[in-house]
Protein backbone atom coordinates (compact mmCIF):
# COMPACT_ATOMS: atom_id res chain seq x y z
CA UNK A 1 0.00 0.00 0.00
CA UNK A 2 2.61 2.52 1.07
CA UNK A 3 4.89 1.61 -1.77
CA UNK A 4 2.18 2.19 -4.34
CA UNK A 5 1.31 5.50 -2.76
CA UNK A 6 4.93 6.56 -2.85
CA UNK A 7 5.45 5.30 -6.34
CA UNK A 8 2.63 7.42 -7.63
CA UNK A 9 3.82 10.46 -5.79
CA UNK A 10 7.21 10.15 -7.43
CA UNK A 11 5.51 9.44 -10.74
CA UNK A 12 3.91 12.91 -10.69
CA UNK A 13 7.32 14.48 -10.46
CA UNK A 14 8.71 12.17 -13.09
CA UNK A 15 6.41 13.67 -15.70
CA UNK A 16 8.77 16.60 -15.91
CA UNK A 17 11.90 14.52 -16.36
CA UNK A 18 11.85 12.68 -19.65
CA UNK A 19 14.54 10.19 -18.74
CA UNK A 20 12.87 9.16 -15.52
CA UNK A 21 9.59 9.16 -17.44
CA UNK A 22 10.83 6.17 -19.37
CA UNK A 23 11.24 4.27 -16.13
CA UNK A 24 7.72 5.18 -15.13
CA UNK A 25 6.49 3.90 -18.46
CA UNK A 26 8.07 0.55 -17.76
CA UNK A 27 6.53 0.36 -14.31
CA UNK A 28 2.98 1.50 -15.04
CA UNK A 29 2.78 0.35 -18.63
CA UNK A 30 1.57 3.79 -19.76
CA UNK A 31 3.52 6.63 -21.29
CA UNK A 32 3.53 9.80 -19.17
CA UNK A 33 0.59 11.83 -20.40
CA UNK A 34 2.33 15.08 -21.25
CA UNK A 35 4.88 13.23 -23.36
CA UNK A 36 2.44 11.04 -25.20
CA UNK A 37 -0.18 13.70 -25.86
CA UNK A 38 -0.67 14.36 -29.56
CA UNK A 39 -2.94 17.28 -30.39
CA UNK A 40 -3.88 15.84 -33.75
CA UNK A 41 -5.47 12.82 -32.07
CA UNK A 42 -8.07 14.79 -30.11
CA UNK A 43 -11.10 16.97 -30.71
CA UNK A 44 -12.50 18.01 -27.38
CA UNK A 45 -16.03 18.90 -26.43
CA UNK A 46 -18.57 18.23 -23.71
CA UNK A 47 -21.88 16.48 -23.33
CA UNK A 48 -24.35 18.00 -20.90
CA UNK A 49 -27.35 16.00 -19.85
CA UNK A 50 -30.05 18.38 -18.61
CA UNK A 51 -31.97 15.45 -17.14
CA UNK A 52 -29.06 14.73 -14.80
CA UNK A 53 -28.28 18.25 -13.59
CA UNK A 54 -29.39 18.87 -10.01
CA UNK A 55 -28.19 22.48 -9.78
CA UNK A 56 -25.82 21.81 -6.87
CA UNK A 57 -23.22 24.24 -8.23
CA UNK A 58 -20.36 21.81 -7.61
CA UNK A 59 -19.03 22.50 -11.12
CA UNK A 60 -19.00 26.26 -10.54
CA UNK A 61 -17.10 25.95 -7.27
CA UNK A 62 -14.68 23.40 -8.69
CA UNK A 63 -13.98 25.56 -11.75
CA UNK A 64 -13.38 28.56 -9.56
CA UNK A 65 -10.91 26.67 -7.36
CA UNK A 66 -9.13 24.88 -10.17
CA UNK A 67 -8.70 27.99 -12.31
CA UNK A 68 -8.60 30.80 -9.71
CA UNK A 69 -11.55 32.54 -11.34
CA UNK A 70 -11.99 36.00 -9.76
CA UNK A 71 -15.12 36.59 -7.69
CA UNK A 72 -18.16 37.68 -9.67
CA UNK A 73 -16.88 36.27 -12.98
CA UNK A 74 -17.66 32.85 -14.36
CA UNK A 75 -16.00 30.37 -16.65
CA UNK A 76 -18.95 28.13 -16.00
CA UNK A 77 -22.28 28.78 -14.34
CA UNK A 78 -25.67 27.15 -13.90
CA UNK A 79 -29.01 28.71 -14.80
CA UNK A 80 -32.40 27.67 -13.52
CA UNK A 81 -35.22 28.07 -16.01
CA UNK A 82 -38.88 28.30 -15.06
CA UNK A 83 -40.84 27.93 -18.26
CA UNK A 84 -44.57 28.68 -18.11
CA UNK A 85 -46.89 27.32 -20.79
CA UNK A 86 -47.22 30.82 -22.16
CA UNK A 87 -45.06 33.90 -21.90
CA UNK A 88 -41.43 34.51 -21.12
CA UNK A 89 -39.37 32.09 -19.08
CA UNK A 90 -37.96 33.23 -15.76
CA UNK A 91 -34.26 32.57 -15.40
CA UNK A 92 -32.03 32.81 -12.36
CA UNK A 93 -28.38 32.20 -11.69
CA UNK A 94 -27.61 33.59 -8.23
CA UNK A 95 -23.86 34.29 -8.19
CA UNK A 96 -23.61 31.88 -11.12
CA UNK A 97 -24.95 29.14 -8.79
CA UNK A 98 -21.70 29.30 -6.83
CA UNK A 99 -23.74 28.17 -3.84
CA UNK A 100 -26.36 26.28 -5.77
CA UNK A 101 -29.93 27.57 -5.65
CA UNK A 102 -30.89 28.41 -2.06
CA UNK A 103 -34.62 28.72 -2.80
CA UNK A 104 -36.58 26.00 -4.59
CA UNK A 105 -38.43 26.72 -7.84
CA UNK A 106 -42.26 26.90 -7.74
CA UNK A 107 -43.83 23.48 -8.13
CA UNK A 108 -46.54 24.48 -10.63
CA UNK A 109 -44.22 25.49 -13.49
CA UNK A 110 -41.83 23.43 -15.59
CA UNK A 111 -38.34 24.05 -14.29
CA UNK A 112 -34.87 22.67 -14.88
CA UNK A 113 -31.18 23.54 -14.64
CA UNK A 114 -28.89 24.45 -17.52
CA UNK A 115 -25.13 24.37 -16.94
CA UNK A 116 -23.26 26.77 -19.21
CA UNK A 117 -19.66 27.08 -20.23
CA UNK A 118 -17.67 28.06 -23.29
CA UNK A 119 -19.01 26.05 -26.20
CA UNK A 120 -15.57 25.67 -27.76
CA UNK A 121 -17.13 26.47 -31.09
CA UNK A 122 -15.44 24.98 -34.12
CA UNK A 123 -16.32 28.18 -35.97
CA UNK A 124 -15.93 30.63 -33.18
CA UNK A 125 -16.79 34.33 -33.54
CA UNK A 126 -14.48 35.25 -30.65
CA UNK A 127 -11.50 33.82 -32.50
CA UNK A 128 -12.63 35.51 -35.69
CA UNK A 129 -12.70 38.99 -34.18
CA UNK A 130 -9.51 38.92 -32.10
CA UNK A 131 -7.35 41.57 -33.76
CA UNK A 132 -3.97 40.12 -32.79
CA UNK A 133 -4.35 36.35 -32.55
CA UNK A 134 -4.46 36.25 -28.76
CA UNK A 135 -7.42 33.89 -28.75
CA UNK A 136 -7.47 30.85 -30.94
CA UNK A 137 -8.84 27.38 -31.57
CA UNK A 138 -6.13 24.88 -30.63
CA UNK A 139 -5.42 21.96 -33.00
CA UNK A 140 -7.26 19.72 -30.53
CA UNK A 141 -10.38 21.86 -30.59
CA UNK A 142 -10.18 24.06 -27.50
CA UNK A 143 -10.71 27.82 -27.67
CA UNK A 144 -7.96 29.39 -25.58
CA UNK A 145 -6.67 32.83 -24.62
CA UNK A 146 -2.98 33.71 -24.64
CA UNK A 147 -2.82 35.82 -21.47
CA UNK A 148 0.57 37.20 -22.41
CA UNK A 149 -0.60 38.45 -25.80
CA UNK A 150 -4.17 39.71 -25.21
CA UNK A 151 -4.67 43.46 -25.55
CA UNK A 152 -7.78 43.57 -23.43
CA UNK A 153 -9.83 45.21 -26.21
CA UNK A 154 -12.83 43.02 -25.35
CA UNK A 155 -14.04 42.61 -28.89
CA UNK A 156 -14.21 38.86 -28.23
CA UNK A 157 -16.44 39.45 -25.21
CA UNK A 158 -18.85 41.33 -27.48
CA UNK A 159 -18.66 38.68 -30.18
CA UNK A 160 -19.51 35.68 -27.98
CA UNK A 161 -23.24 34.93 -28.38
CA UNK A 162 -23.24 32.94 -25.14
CA UNK A 163 -21.79 35.44 -22.65
CA UNK A 164 -18.93 33.08 -21.83
CA UNK A 165 -16.13 35.64 -21.79
CA UNK A 166 -15.13 38.39 -19.40
CA UNK A 167 -12.25 40.72 -18.76
CA UNK A 168 -10.25 39.30 -15.86
CA UNK A 169 -9.68 42.26 -13.53
CA UNK A 170 -6.47 40.69 -12.22
CA UNK A 171 -4.76 40.12 -15.56
CA UNK A 172 -6.65 42.78 -17.56
CA UNK A 173 -7.02 40.26 -20.35
CA UNK A 174 -9.92 38.32 -21.78
CA UNK A 175 -10.66 35.20 -19.80
CA UNK A 176 -12.85 32.16 -20.32
CA UNK A 177 -13.17 28.40 -19.87
CA UNK A 178 -10.08 26.53 -21.10
CA UNK A 179 -11.87 23.18 -20.89
CA UNK A 180 -9.18 22.62 -18.23
CA UNK A 181 -6.61 22.30 -20.99
CA UNK A 182 -3.92 21.71 -18.38
CA UNK A 183 -5.87 18.68 -17.14
CA UNK A 184 -7.28 17.10 -20.27
CA UNK A 185 -3.89 17.10 -21.97
CA UNK A 186 -2.53 14.90 -19.20
CA UNK A 187 -5.31 12.40 -19.12
CA UNK A 188 -7.51 13.98 -16.46
CA UNK A 189 -11.05 15.18 -16.97
CA UNK A 190 -12.08 18.82 -16.42
CA UNK A 191 -12.59 20.12 -12.89
CA UNK A 192 -16.33 20.56 -13.53
CA UNK A 193 -16.77 17.01 -14.86
CA UNK A 194 -14.61 15.59 -12.08
CA UNK A 195 -16.88 17.23 -9.52
CA UNK A 196 -20.28 16.70 -11.12
CA UNK A 197 -21.95 14.20 -8.75
CA UNK A 198 -24.49 12.89 -11.26
CA UNK A 199 -22.43 12.76 -14.43
CA UNK A 200 -24.50 15.54 -16.02
CA UNK A 201 -21.29 16.82 -17.56
CA UNK A 202 -19.07 14.52 -19.57
CA UNK A 203 -15.83 15.50 -21.21
CA UNK A 204 -15.92 14.23 -24.77
CA UNK A 205 -13.20 13.48 -27.27
CA UNK A 206 -14.87 13.31 -30.66
CA UNK A 207 -11.73 11.92 -32.28
CA UNK A 208 -11.44 9.01 -29.87
CA UNK A 209 -13.34 6.10 -31.44
CA UNK A 210 -13.71 4.48 -27.99
CA UNK A 211 -15.36 7.55 -26.44
CA UNK A 212 -18.90 6.64 -25.29
CA UNK A 213 -20.15 9.84 -26.97
CA UNK A 214 -20.41 8.05 -30.33
CA UNK A 215 -22.74 5.43 -28.89
CA UNK A 216 -24.70 8.16 -27.11
CA UNK A 217 -25.12 10.29 -30.23
CA UNK A 218 -26.39 7.28 -32.18
CA UNK A 219 -29.26 6.77 -29.76
CA UNK A 220 -30.12 10.22 -28.42
CA UNK A 221 -31.32 13.57 -29.69
CA UNK A 222 -28.99 16.38 -28.80
CA UNK A 223 -28.97 20.11 -29.40
CA UNK A 224 -26.49 22.97 -29.15
CA UNK A 225 -27.15 26.47 -27.84
CA UNK A 226 -28.24 29.06 -30.43
CA UNK A 227 -27.69 26.79 -33.43
CA UNK A 228 -28.74 29.63 -35.76
CA UNK A 229 -25.52 31.43 -34.84
CA UNK A 230 -23.74 28.76 -36.90
CA UNK A 231 -20.79 28.73 -34.53
CA UNK A 232 -20.71 24.90 -34.42
CA UNK A 233 -20.50 24.46 -30.66
CA UNK A 234 -18.79 21.33 -29.40
CA UNK A 235 -20.77 21.41 -26.17
CA UNK A 236 -23.84 19.28 -26.86
CA UNK A 237 -26.96 19.29 -24.73
CA UNK A 238 -29.23 16.32 -24.19
CA UNK A 239 -32.86 17.10 -23.27
CA UNK A 240 -32.46 20.81 -23.96
CA UNK A 241 -35.72 22.79 -23.83
CA UNK A 242 -36.56 25.19 -26.66
CA UNK A 243 -36.88 28.07 -24.20
CA UNK A 244 -33.17 28.02 -23.36
CA UNK A 245 -31.10 30.87 -24.77
Amino acid sequence: MMTRRDLFRIGGKMLVLASVGATLEEITGAAPASEAYKMADHWWGMLIDIDKCIGCGNCVRACSKENNVPNGYFRTWVERYEVPEEGQPKVESPDGAMNGFPLPAPANVKSFFVPKLCNHCADSPCVQVCPVGATFLSPDGVVLVDQTYCLGCRYCVQACPYGCRFLNPETNTADKCTLCYHRITQGLTTACCENCPTGARQLVDFKNPKDPIHEFLRHNKVQVLKPYMATEPKVKYHDLDGAVR
Binding site: Y73, W77, E92, G96, K116, R154, V157, G163
Partner: peptide, 13 residues
Protein backbone atom coordinates in the same frame (compact mmCIF):
# COMPACT_ATOMS: atom_id res chain seq x y z
CA UNK B 1 -33.70 43.80 -14.43
CA UNK B 2 -34.59 40.26 -15.44
CA UNK B 3 -31.82 37.87 -16.34
CA UNK B 4 -28.35 38.67 -17.61
CA UNK B 5 -25.73 36.00 -18.25
CA UNK B 6 -23.53 36.50 -15.18
CA UNK B 7 -20.59 37.86 -17.21
CA UNK B 8 -22.83 40.36 -19.01
CA UNK B 9 -23.69 42.50 -16.00
CA UNK B 10 -20.63 44.67 -16.42
CA UNK B 11 -20.36 46.73 -19.63
CA UNK B 12 -17.20 46.10 -21.63
CA UNK B 13 -17.16 49.14 -23.88
Amino acid sequence: DGFMYPNEVELQW
